[in-house]
Structure formats: C-alpha cells, structure tokens
Design a protein around this nucleic acid. Sequence first.
DNA 1: TGCGCTGATGTGACCGTTCACACAAGAGTC
DNA 2: GACTCTTGTGTGAACGGTCACATCAGCGCA
Lengths: 341, 341
Amino acid sequence: MRSVQEPTIRDVARAAGVSYQTVSRVINGNERVAEATRRRVQTAIGELGYRPNRAARELAGKAVRSLTVLTSDTSLYGNAAALRGIEEAARTAGFAVSISVLDRHAALDAEELRARLVRPGEPVIVIAFDAAGVRALELLPADVPVTALVERPPGDDPDPRHVWLDDRLAATRATRHLLGLGHPTVHCLALPSSTAHTAQRTEGWLDALREAGVDAPAPIDGGWTPRSGYLAARGLLERHPDATAVLCGNDDLALGMLRAAREAGRRVPDELSVVGFDDTPASAYLAPALTTVRLDFEGLGRTGFGLLHRLLDPSAPGQEPCAEPELIVRESSGPGGRGIG
Amino acid sequence: MRSVQEPTIRDVARAAGVSYQTVSRVINGNERVAEATRRRVQTAIGELGYRPNRAARELAGKAVRSLTVLTSDTSLYGNAAALRGIEEAARTAGFAVSISVLDRHAALDAEELRARLVRPGEPVIVIAFDAAGVRALELLPADVPVTALVERPPGDDPDPRHVWLDDRLAATRATRHLLGLGHPTVHCLALPSSTAHTAQRTEGWLDALREAGVDAPAPIDGGWTPRSGYLAARGLLERHPDATAVLCGNDDLALGMLRAAREAGRRVPDELSVVGFDDTPASAYLAPALTTVRLDFEGLGRTGFGLLHRLLDPSAPGQEPCAEPELIVRESSGPGGRGIG
DNA sequence: TGCGCTGATGTGACCGTTCACACAAGAGTC
DNA sequence: GACTCTTGTGTGAACGGTCACATCAGCGCA
C-alpha cells in the first residue's frame, strides 16, 4: 500500500551481517550484545531509517507504549490543561496518546465503551471531573489498567488509582478570603457535581462558612459555561438581592456572574464580590480582573500519567507533585458588609 | 499479560462450528456467506464478547482505521473546536484518533517528527493555523497520507489536501462593519502569521480598507493569548492615541485589547470600537460583550477528516460544507469618527 | 451423463516482531 | 584435557488476523 516499503528487522540484520534476533536485542537494550556488534547494528538502523513496527511488536506480546484519554470536552480549560499535562508526560516517556471524547448528553453504556471507545488491552486515563467521566470510569471493565483525574473522592480509603487536586481546600481558602473581607456570608454558584455527593468545591465553601459560624445559603446550580453561569447568576441575584459575595465554581461561571451583576446594576467589587476557580488565561483581563484560585491541572495530568505508568511498570520513575491551590487576589473581590465600608 | 485472555477469531470459529476464515468473512462483511452461517457466527461473537485485534489486523496488511492529529496547543479555542470536529467525524467513521502536541517554541526537525510524532503508515491531520503546524506540514514525508487545516493558502493552485475557513472574507466583513459605523480607519492587532506571507485576517482587513480608499495603518503584531493582546494593545494605544476602531486577530487578543483600553481610559464602544474573531463561548459575556466573527472550526475539523477519509478510500462519503463566517454584532463596536457622534 | 459455473467454505502462507530455547566459543577450574 | 560457566549469537515457534488459492457441493445445460 505505502509506495516505499518500510525496512524490517531482517533488512537491518542483513545489512549488519547478523541475525534478526540480534537486531531485536539491540533495539530492546538487551545487555548480552558485544559492543562492536551493537554499533554495527545501530549504524545499519540509522542508514536504513528503520523504525520498529508497532503492530508486530504488540502482536508478539510486548507491552506497547500507548494509552487512551477519555474526556468529555476538550475545550473546557481544566480538561484541556490536564490533557496537555498527560500528553507531555506521556510523550516524554515514549507513549502515544489517543483521545476519545465522551458525549456529555448521550447515556453511555458499557458496550459502547468497550466496543468503540477503548481498545482491547489499552490502558486508559479518564478525566472524570464531570458526571460523564465518572460514569465512564464506573463502566470500565476491572481488567483495564486505568487511572483517573477526579474530584477528591469521599471516604477514608480512596481508590489508589485516582488523583485529584485539593478542590475542597481551595474553596475553603477562597471563602475565607471573602469572609475575611467582611462579607456577612458568601453565596455559591456551583458546578454540576460529578457524583451523587456534593461537589468538593461546594463542600469546601461549606467548611469555611461553618468554621466562621455563618449560616450557609442554598447553593445555586450552574453548569460549566459562561452562558450557564449567567443564567444561574440572574436567578441568584433575583432571589438574593442582598448578596454581597459569590463564589463561582469556575472562571467561566464567574464570567457569567459578572455579566449578570452588571446588568442588575450591581457594581463589582464595590457592591458584590465575585471569586472564581482555575485561573484561566482570560481571568486576569476581565473587567474587573477576576479573583480566583489557581489549580495545577497540567501537573495533575502529569501525575495521572505517572501513576498509570507505574501501574504498568512498577520501576517507572515517580512524578513531581502538583502545585498547591493558590488564591490569586485581583479586582473582583473587595471589602463588604460589616467591613471597612 | 492481561489476566483474562481476549477471545480470538479461532475461538469464535470453534464456538460457531466453522473455520476461522468464515469468521473473518463475517467480520469484514464479505457477501459470500450463507445467511444461517452468518447468524451463527454473529451469535458466537456476541456470546464470547469477541473484538478483532487491531495489531493483528494491521500486521496482516489491512488498512487500519486510525489517524494522528498534530496540533500545537489544545487549549486555544480554534484548535480545541477543530479537534472536537475531527474526533467526532472520525469516531463516527470508526477511526481511532491519536494526538501529538507540537511544542510551539522548540524547533521541530524531520527526524523528531518521523521518530516520535507520527507512526509509520499512519495518516495525519495537521492543525496548521500557526507556524508550528505549518512547519510540521512541510517536514512530513511525501508518502504520509495527510490533510491539513490551514489559513487560506495564497496562489491559484492550492494544495487539494488543505481545507480552510474564509478568514480573509471574515476579516473584510468585520472591517466593513467598522467602516460602515463611520470610523475613519481601522487598526489591526494581528495574530502571528502561520507562513512567511501576511496573515489572511490581515489581508482581509487590508482589502476592506483599500476598497474604502482608506490608508492602512501599520498592523501591530500580537500573539495568541489575552496577555499578548494586552501588551500589544498598550503599544497600539500609545502610538495611536487617536485610534477609534481596532480589529483583533482573535477574541483572546480582543480581551487583552479591552483591558488595555480600560486602563488607558478609553471607553468601549463610545470612544473605541473593538472587534474580535472566533466567537468563543466567553465573548458574549465580556464587558462589553464582544462583536466578533463566528467561524465554524468544528465544521472545518469534520471537513478535514472527510478529505482524509476520501484520500484513503475514494468511496468514503462527502462531508457537509462548513458554515460561512458570520459577523456577530454585540456591544463592543459602535459609531465612531464622522459617524452619528 | 458429463461439463463448466457459481456460491459457500476450508487450508496454508505470511505480515514483523518477541520469546524460549539451542548452540558455539572462550575463560576459569580441577 | 575434560568439566562447567559465561557470553554472544542463531533458530523455531508463536501472536491474531488477512489474503490467495483449493476444494466441494449443487445447479443448469447440451
């Protein structure tokens, strides 16, 4: 089919005057090859431009270095950044990365997953920040090597194949920041939870309110996009005209919140403080620039890959840990309520 | 290696009481199989949960349905949307999608590309909106089946393996819109060009100015991000304090422009009109909401895949065409100069 | 009745690699 | 000098499919 035939291990062997098995040994870094022979083979490889055939290698039972990422939407900032981290770490380790996108709306079933989304024997990393990812994770057969990027799992004995950022702590810090500015309470515009439990960011918000002995208003359900944030924010402002501070599930929701506030004539941060999550590249340039919590999604992606790598090969090197959540105070949060005002 | 052995074609054959070749025929939809036999085989396949082994299939010379997407940064809106379009179309057609990310800063060489980024025989789609993508496209060996998502190529005889959106026309329309509002001229905050030529969006802007008989100010070079847009915009406003309208290479640059304008005390749109490109999900919620040109990146991705598919298999179905660029007028553009003011 | 034709099915070789094993040559030991 | 032991290298058989070809039954037709 290809006009120029790729050279095979036997072509190399012939060129180097050795057997094909010796070439295989050189390729795989086997010790038991004389230095002179090894050099001869490597020269032949270089001259012929030989590349090992993945399919043949895989068929012959060699663990093949590839993985599939399962994710719902590559254009969300967190997902895209995590994907970048995975891809980078994987490529460094010589893994090829495939990607399968989960439809957030269609109900996924195990058959579909097995038949079309993951290949037999292929290891998988699931970006499971949302319900679609979590569902895929549940449906994955037990014998598939898998790690997952998740919200912090509830319970004391979390799955060792999961990695997460400390969203709960991040939310607590952001909420403390707002309470510290003098706001009597903080409202919450929440992301959809990925599980049946309350989302971690919402839990962290509750933690801080409880800690301060403040009654928690009911959190408002948002989606993932600026549009859904905007719609939810309008509802929030209508029901709580007295709100002075809102913690939003991500920067996109916060953007929608900012707009809704503007339309309602609520000046940010003078009358209303808004805080987001993720520190997207846009957030520093919004009007007003968004106070947010920077989360190391790229690092999380690298960590997720590292965990999978060690699952497949226990001698694989460890990964640097992710950065801690970091509150970035900008213009959208300011003194409120019983504060300096 | 896997704890549970996957069933093979021979297991299915045994279960159905036929030869392995008959099973192969059923899998590949060969006509010459008796209806009763076919059904028996399909039942066996279902019961055993048989899936064809990709590696074996590929090794035996069957064209294997997979492709690699080469792109520089999955978190840019255009790239992410195009990737989504490719993935969707590819999955519908039964193709697996791999992804290799090009480092925008490191100089790519042909060896690296061949050795690590694309697999032997694997077809490729390059998202070549930027220089890194275009360079990868140039370095790709001639025998690799490839299509590319590019800026409109200059010249009368464009490469038939390329697809593009009409960025030039889009820019012309956006510029006409601004001129029509009465602005004496329109400045341009340009994306980095992907080639040695002037970027298509810049050309389209020049077209409209020429058409209106207006002198074109020198375009200002921006990058791809809000930050780079902000920095370039500060320079622009300093050098041209009289500017009343700016066309920005994408919505992210426009966001940076909006911020720079605010800091310089230039009210948008009263004193300065700003127009972007792409219609990102955020653009409708910015302050002010951004006038922009909606571009069908997802459709372009689908088209790029369709072209590749037909390259591999001329009988593959055609694709629906992409949507035309559409100007979305929002709040950031308004009357200027000799207009109603 | 014997012929060729056609549709349905089976057999053998091969794709490019790895693995398990066999084997040859030289070094060290007694 | 016969013995193990080590080191380097070669041979045969998988791996799970596809392809080309062989076979075989049933049919129409002269």
